[in-house]
Design a protein around this nucleic acid. Structure first.
Lengths: 220, 220
DNA sequence: GCATGACTTGATTGATCGTTCAACCAAGTC
DNA sequence: GACTTGGTTGAACGATCAATCAAGTCATGC
C-alpha cells in the first residue's frame, strides 16, 4: 500500500483547507475566494456542499473537536502515563506549537471564540463543545490522579483552570512574541499543582491507607 | 458648572466611538462606515486626522492603555487597600462586566490580540503595552504584599498568571455564556494564593523579625 | 441510448469594503 | 479683500466580499 491518503473528496478537501486557513488567518480574514483557491475548488462546488461560509465553519469546528483526541492528545501523551504529568505534557505540546511558529501560534478555538463577537447559537455551541472536549480530557487526568490531589478539590474546576492557563499563556506569548510569557503561566500552574499534591500528601484522603506519594514521578 | 464635557473634538469623538465599537464588534467587523455613522463624522474628516483605519486602532489602543488606571483600576480598587484583595477586586470588576453584558463581555485587548493574526509591528507593540500596563499594576500589588507571599516567588510571573486567569476565564465564560466558568478560574487562583500565603506564613522570610502577619489588612 | 441525479464549472451579481478627492467653509493674518 | 490654514462635506472609485446560477460533465440505472 503505497499511499494511505485515498484522494480526499472535495468536501473533505474544503474542510481540511478551511481548518488550516481559519487557524492561520482567522474566520473573518479568510475569504471564500482564499479557501477556494487553496483547496482547488470552484465556488459552485462549495455551495453545493455547504449553504454558506458559516456552515463551513461549523464543519471545521466539528472536525477540530474530533481531532482533539487523535491529533492533539495522542502525540502529546505518547510515553507519558502519569496523569498529572499528562496535564503538563499537553501544555508542553502547546509550547512546541508556539516555538515552531515563532510565537505566532494561537489556539484555533480560542481565537475563533474571541473573534466571533456575535456568534449564531450553533457556532457558539460548537466552540463550547470544543472547550468541553478539552477540559473533559484534562478532568479525566485529574480524576485519575486520585488521592494525589486533595479530596475536596473540584476536578472539573481545576480542569477549566488548566485550559485558562493554556489560553492565557498562548495569548500573551503571541502578543509579546516571547514564549517566556507562556512559560510563566505554566510554571505558576505547576507551583499550584505542587502545593495541591503536598496538601494531599500531608492530610491523606480519609482513614484509608496513608500511603506515600507514588515513587515514579514520570516527568523529565 | 453645568456641563463638564466640553464638546469633544471630531478626533476625540472618533477615538471614543471606535473604542466602543472595536470592543463590541471587533476591529475587522467594524467597518469605517459603521464608525463614521456612529460618530457622526464624514469620511473625509476621518482621513484628515488618520492615514487609515489601522491608525485609528493605534490611537484606540493608546487610549485603552491610558484608561487602565482611571477607568479600570480606580473604580475596582475604591475602598480596597489590601494589596492582595486588590488583585481579586480587579477580577471581581471583570466579573461585573461579564454579568452586566449577559456573558457577552470580552476584554478588548485580548480580543484584538487574537483577532489580528498578522499584526503590523506597531499594533502588536501597542497590544503588548496594554498587557504590560495591566500586569505592572498587579505586580505592584504583589510587591506591596511583601512577606505575605513567599520570598522566592517571582512577583512578575505571578502577575502574568493573574492576567492569564482573567483572559482565560473571560474567554470561557463568553463561550459558554455562563459566569461560572470565570468563577471557576478565579476560585482556583484564590486557592493558589491561599497556599502561597500559608507557605509564606509557615516559613517566614529569613532571619528577620519573625513577626506575625500584619494585623492591619490595609496596606497603604 | 437515454434519462437521472450527483457533482463541477466559472462568469456574474449586488453589496460592502477602505480610501480618495475636489469642492467648500470659517476663522485668522497680512 | 485676497490668502492661508485647519477642518468639513459627501459623492465617487476600484477592490473585494459572499453568494448565485445556468450550463456542463459523468457515472449509474433502466
Amino acid at each position: 500500500m503505497p499511499d494511505t491518503a485515498p484522494a480526499p473528496s472535495t468536501r473533505d478537501r474544503l474542510i481540511q483547507t478551511a481548518m488550516k486557513l481559519f487557524w492561520e488567518k482567522g474566520y473573518g480574514s479568510t475569504s471564500v475566494a482564499d479557501l477556494l483557491q487553496a483547496a482547488g475548488v470552484n465556488s459552485g462546488s462549495l455551495y453545493h456542499f455547504f449553504p454558506g461560509k458559516q456552515d463551513v465553519l461549523l464543519a471545521v469546528l466539528d472536525a477540530y473537536r474530533d481531532g482533539i483526541g487523535p491529533m492533539l492528545l495522542a502525540p502529546a501523551w505518547q510515553g507519558v502515563d502519569d496523569p498529572i504529568e499528562r496535564v503538563f505534557a499537553l501544555l508542553a505540546r502547546y509550547r512546541l506549537g508556539i516555538v515552531q511558529t515563532d510565537c505566532g501560534y494561537a489556539c484555533p478555538i480560542g481565537s475563533l471564540a474571541l473573534e466571533i463577537h456575535e456568534p449564531d447559537p450553533p457556532v457558539r455551541k460548537a466552540l463550547a463543545a470544543n472547550f468541553n472536549a478539552w477540559t473533559d480530557a484534562i478532568e479525566a487526568c485529574l480524576v485519575a490522579a486520585g488521592p494525589r490531589l486533595p479530596r475536596s478539590l473540584d476536578r472539573r474546576e481545576l480542569a477549566r483552570f488548566v485550559l485558562t492557563t493554556m489560553e492565557g499563556g498562548v495569548m500573551q506569548a503571541r502578543t509579546h512574541r516571547d514564549v517566556a510569557y507562556f512559560d510563566s503561566s505554566v510554571r505558576q500552574l505547576r507551583l499550584y499543582f505542587d502545593h495541591l499534591e503536598r496538601e494531599a500528601a500531608d492530610k491523606p484522603s480519609r482513614a484509608k491507607a496513608p500511603r506515600k506519594r507514588p515513587t515514579s514521578r514520570g516527568t523529565k
